[in-house]
């Protein structure tokens, strides 16, 4: 099985290359830094399976690339691997039709196992996203809508712009921010955004900024 690795971090990429090269069933065809080139390699090579990170070089989003590839090459299996606990990634991956989703800190056996099971037709997804400590609260205590507001907040958007983007009233945005502050105990919106970004709870796609 021909594997394409898409990972911007050179050490993590090297490790994945080793895992694949040491495996008898898989052959690494290419190993690249940016998801922007993934489609090109699919067009010019026989690729059976892609191991792809979400946030890759040149601000290319692995999920976006996966969506395009799945449309043109539905037979190519795609496994998204990430170190980010961003909760929306899993939902989006499922919606796109990504075959499997796993976390990057897995060891060689786990990665190869996910590859094997995916090739066998299984869809491997984690049961839940990691429940992170976010101030005085757990990340699971935040509602989906609050997380959406938080995601925009990390992009440095004023409340009015967030309201427009998320099609909600300014008062609702402020209420969500206030609720999150009460849950977490953070003093202000900046602290809320900085901490959320630091722990990778929400990641704003740079293209949407």
């Amino acid at each position: 099985m021909n594997v394409l690795i898409v990972e911007d971090d050179s050490m993590a990429r090297k490790l994945l290359e080793i895992y694949i090269n040491e495996s008898a069933d898989y052959e690494m065809v290419h190993s690249i830094e940016s998801a922007a080139m993934a489609e090109f390699y699919c067009l010019t090579n026989k690729i059976d399976i892609i191991l792809m990170d979400v946030c890759t070089a040149m601000d290319a989003n692995g999920l976006e690339a996966a969506e395009k590839i799945k449309k043109s090459f539905p037979d190519i299996k795609i496994i998204i691997i990430t170190s980010q606990p961003e909760c929306s990634f899993i939902d989006r991956a499922r919606a796109i039709g990504v075959d499997s989703f796993w976390y990057k800190n897995a060891n060689a056996e786990e990665i190869i196992s996910v590859l094997d099971r995916t090739v066998a037709g299984e869809n491997i997804y984690p049961d839940t996203t990691p429940d992170l400590k976010f101030g005085d609260a757990k990340s699971s205590e935040l509602t989906d809508r609050e997380l959406e507001v938080l995601r925009e907040l990390t992009g440095g958007e004023p409340d009015a712009v967030i309201a427009e983007k998320l099609h909600m009233s300014l008062r609702t945005v402020k209420a969500h921010i206030q609720n999150m502050r009460e849950k977490t105990g953070f003093r202000n919106r900046t602290e809320l955004a900085v901490r959320a970004r630091e722990i990778g709870l929400v990641i704003k796609d740079k293209k949407s900024e």
């Binding site: 911007d8 971090d9 050179s10 050490m11 830094e33 940016s34 070089a57 040149m58």
Partner: peptide, 9 residues
């Protein structure tokens, strides 16, 4: 080493 991201690309 720690080479990565946009500068490598």
């Amino acid at each position: 080493g720690a080479t990565n991201n946009d500068e490598e690309y």
